[in-house]
Structure formats: C-alpha cells, structure tokens
Computed example of a mutant assay.
Amino acid sequence: MTTAAHWPASARYQQVQDTAPGGLGFVQDLLNTASLGKPRKPDLLESVDTAGEWLTSSLAALGTLDPTAPPPHPLDTRGLTRLRTLRDDLRTALATSHTDEPTPTGTAPPIRVTATISVDAEGARLEPRGTGAELLRSYVLIQLAAATYADTLRRLKVCANPRCRGAFYDRSKNCSRLWHDVTTCGNTQNVRAYRARQKERGLASRH
C-alpha cells in the first residue's frame, strides 16, 4: 500500500483523500499556501523565510512520489514574487463557478515558462528548465499539461465559497463537487442563497 504524501499547505484545509495524485498534488499544495478558510490561515508565501520552510517540506513530499522533482533551492524576493503571482493566476484560472455567485474562469493572463523535450526509446517527455523559482514554475506548468492530457486537471478545483477558495481534488464519480467541505462551505453558501431568495420574495410580495 502506497503511503500518502504529507502536503503541508493542503493539510491545513482538507483530508488526505482530497489531495491530487502525483505531481499535481504539489500544484494543489502551492494553491493552498494562500491565506484561506475561516478563520484565515497564514499566507505561507508571505515572506522568504515562511516560503522557504513550506517549499522544503512540500518538495520533500513530492520527492516521495516523483524522482524528477525539483531540488530545494533558496528563494529570493524576486523569485517569491514570481511564485506568488503564479499561484494567484492559477487560482483565477481554476476557480469553480457557482450558480448563485458566478466566478469568472479562464481569465488569468497567459503563464509562460521554458521546458526541455527529451526523446528516448520510451517516448517524448517534457522536463522542467531553469533555476530557483523559474524551475518550480516550469515544473508546475508541466504537471498541469500532463494532467490535461490525462483528463485529471478538471478534478483540481477551487472551492465555490468565496470565503474559502481552498483547492481540492474532486474524486466524485461525476466530478460534480463544488465545495472544499460540503458540511461547512456548502451549508454556508446554501443558507446565504436561501436567505437571499426569501428576501427577494418578501420584497416582491410588497408590490
């Protein structure tokens, strides 16, 4: 039996079964470094020091799943800004729409990285290229491309509750989950929507 990787950022928001497989789990962990939830958790990319601690732990988890994982590398201020921008752009692109509170999807600016294509007897594959934050950005985009071809990227979602926005991996059969946690995020949104409908009906009955 394969032991699940311990993703330090994602562990703050959901159970093990909600984490993405393989290298996509690192992408999810990057998304969950943000200040999310209620009460809000700290932003792990707020400073070079906290980002370094998260990165060391997250790459250690990744190394148990992917032998091609990028090695730990110190982040400077510019690299931290680039990594934070990537995280926020990905959250915008992956945001899940909600019927009562629509969220624009696919509106993030294009994310450009460099990569190397290696070809051998087993086929062609993309390999990350660069150093520091650029190597991480390259790895993340390669994982997203691989997940697209494997048809698993659609399962990496951002909670439809605007007060949460935690990233989770939807393992439901029909890939229909909207909430990071249906018992908290889902109920909160449903109650809010219900009250809004009741208010509208009350106003309508006065006219």
Rank of each mutant, 00 (worst) to 15 (best):
A5Q: 03
P8W: 05
S10M: 07
Y13L: 15
Q15I: 11
V16I: 15
Q17L: 12
Q17A: 15
Q17K: 11
D18Q: 13
D18C: 02
D18A: 02
D18F: 03
A20Y: 03
A20C: 01
A20I: 03
P21R: 08
P21T: 03
G22E: 07
G22D: 08
G25E: 09
G25M: 07
Q28M: 02
Q28L: 12
L30A: 01
N32E: 05
A34I: 05
A34R: 11
P39D: 01
R40K: 15
R40T: 12
P42S: 05
P42Y: 01
P42G: 01
D43V: 06
S47Q: 03
T50D: 03
A51H: 04
G52Y: 05
E53W: 01
T56H: 09
S57N: 12
S57D: 13
S58Q: 06
L59F: 04
L59V: 00
L59D: 00
L59T: 06
A61T: 01
A61W: 04
G63W: 01
T68P: 00
T68E: 13
A69E: 07
P70A: 04
P72E: 10
P74C: 12
P74K: 15
P74G: 05
L75R: 01
L83I: 06
L83Y: 07
L83N: 02
R84T: 14
R84L: 10
L86W: 03
L86F: 03
L90P: 12
R91Q: 06
T92V: 15
L94R: 10
T96M: 08
T96S: 14
H98N: 12
D100I: 02
D100A: 14
D100H: 08
T103A: 15
T103C: 10
T105F: 08
G106A: 09
T107A: 15
I111H: 11
I111Y: 04
V119I: 12
V119E: 08
D120K: 02
E122Y: 10
G123P: 04
A124Y: 11
A124S: 14
R125K: 08
L126A: 12
E127P: 00
P128S: 06
T131H: 09
E134P: 12
L136M: 13
S138E: 04
L141C: 10
I142F: 02
I142D: 11
Q143M: 10
Q143A: 13
L144H: 02
T148E: 14
A150K: 14
D151K: 13
D151S: 12
L153R: 14
L153F: 10
L156I: 03
K157V: 08
N161H: 02
C164N: 10
C164A: 05
R165I: 06
R165L: 12
A167Q: 00
Y169G: 00
R171Q: 07
C175S: 14
L178Q: 11
H180C: 15
V182Y: 07
C185H: 07
N187C: 05
N187L: 00
Q189S: 11
N190W: 07
V191R: 05
V191Q: 00
A193K: 00
A193N: 01
A193E: 01
R195M: 08
A196I: 02
A196C: 02
R197I: 05
K199S: 13
E200W: 06
E200M: 09
R201F: 10
R201E: 14
A204N: 10
S205D: 13
R206E: 13
R206T: 13
R206C: 09
